[in-house]
Design a protein around this nucleic acid. Structure first.
Length: 303
DNA sequence: AAGACGAAAGTGGTTGA
DNA sequence: TCAACAACTTTCGTCTT
């Protein structure tokens, strides 16, 4: 747990030995006990912790991980110390250097893969996405890495784009906002990566179905099944009359939920719904008007 | 006080030249 | 690369409960 790590010099005594107290989140000088840093929240530490927890959880249940795991722990390195070169006969020097280069490159690929997989794990659990999505993104990412799609682009953005696409395809869409929050990326970057990936993989881009958002939003708002069913019915009718083409699917979903909730008679203010869905009240109102106008049956007649 | 409603101006992203 | 555009947001005032 407590691990010695070398950073800069200690300003107090000049020694270079430090001690990391994980439970308190402090960085302490091993020599004089000076607390150099409190409330350590660096990224590496955070996902490492998350990782361990996650591993425990996973270990207890489910089939062995396949694409989502990388051969951690088993690693070798080709020698690169000064003496190493002279252990090789002169004639074979160039071959040796070439091999070392390959070795290094393979390692770097593996490193980006294992980094990507742990980032993915974190994001998937943050977004509460199912295992199938996790698996599929991991597989796709491996392919993308092999085909060289990732070159010149950040690992995170590719992952984010893939996740967005796969989640949508899996009928468990997440908004661009949520995805970009999970990866600490700008929305614009995620969207760009998403389109890039669709192009590369030849996937047709279909806008998300508003109905896919309904169950999740309802549970986040603690609304009953009844509301959910009603909302889906409303959505269907709206879809028939094609009121909602070109509108953002989340907006449509929230509007129908709001209508459904008021019909059923459950407490749900516009503000609440808007906040949890990450859109504005006004949007709900506008789309609500359009739906009621066309569907009409929004009065207290049903069920 | 709180929520619903809508008008008007502003924002960020897409599209087409 | 730029302007036009549609969807959506922010802000604010009014009305209802």
């Amino acid at each position: 747990m407590a691990k010695a790590k070398t950073y800069k010099k200690c300003p107090e005594c000049g020694k270079k030995e430090f001690y990391r107290d994980e439970s308190r989140g402090e960085l302490i000088c091993k020599n004089c006990g000076l607390v150099l840093k409190e409330k350590l929240i660096d990224r590496g530490k955070e996902w490492r912790a998350f990782d361990a927890e996650q591993m425990k959880k996973r270990a207890r249940t489910g089939p062995p991980l396949t694409y989502t795991r990388h051969d951690k722990g088993v690693s070798t390195k080709m020698g690169r110390g000064k003496g190493e070169v002279f252990k090789v006969p002169k004639r074979k020097r160039s071959q040796y250097f070439r091999m070392r280069k390959w070795d290094r490159q393979l390692k770097s690929k593996k490193r980006s893969l294992s980094f990507a997989l742990s980032e993915l794990k974190r994001a998937v659990s943050f977004l509460n996405l199912p295992r199938t999505v996790h698996e599929s993104v991991a597989r796709n990412f491996r392919e993308a890495l092999d085909e060289g799609f990732v070159r010149g682009r950040s690992i995170e953005s590719i992952l984010a784009g893939l996740l967005y696409a796969v989640a949508k395809k899996n009928k468990t869409p997440r908004t661009l906002n949520e995805i970009s929050e999970a990866f600490a990326l700008k929305k614009r970057k995620v969207g760009k990566a998403y389109r890039y990936i669709c192009r590369k993989l030849g996937i047709r881009i279909l806008p998300a179905d508003p109905a896919d958002y309904v169950p999740r939003l309802c549970s986040m708002l603690k609304l009953s099944e009844k509301v959910q069913m009603k909302a889906l019915k409303i959505l269907e009718k709206a879809k028939e009359k094609s009121v909602i083409s070109g509108k953002g699917p989340i907006g449509v979903a929230t509007a129908s939920i709001y209508i459904a909730a008021t019909i059923v008679g459950e407490e749900a203010t516009q503000r609440e719904i808007a906040n949890t869905a990450g859109i504005s009240e006004v949007t709900i109102r506008n789309i609500q008007n359009e739906i009621v106008e066309v569907v009409g049956t929004g009065k207290k007649s049903a069920s």
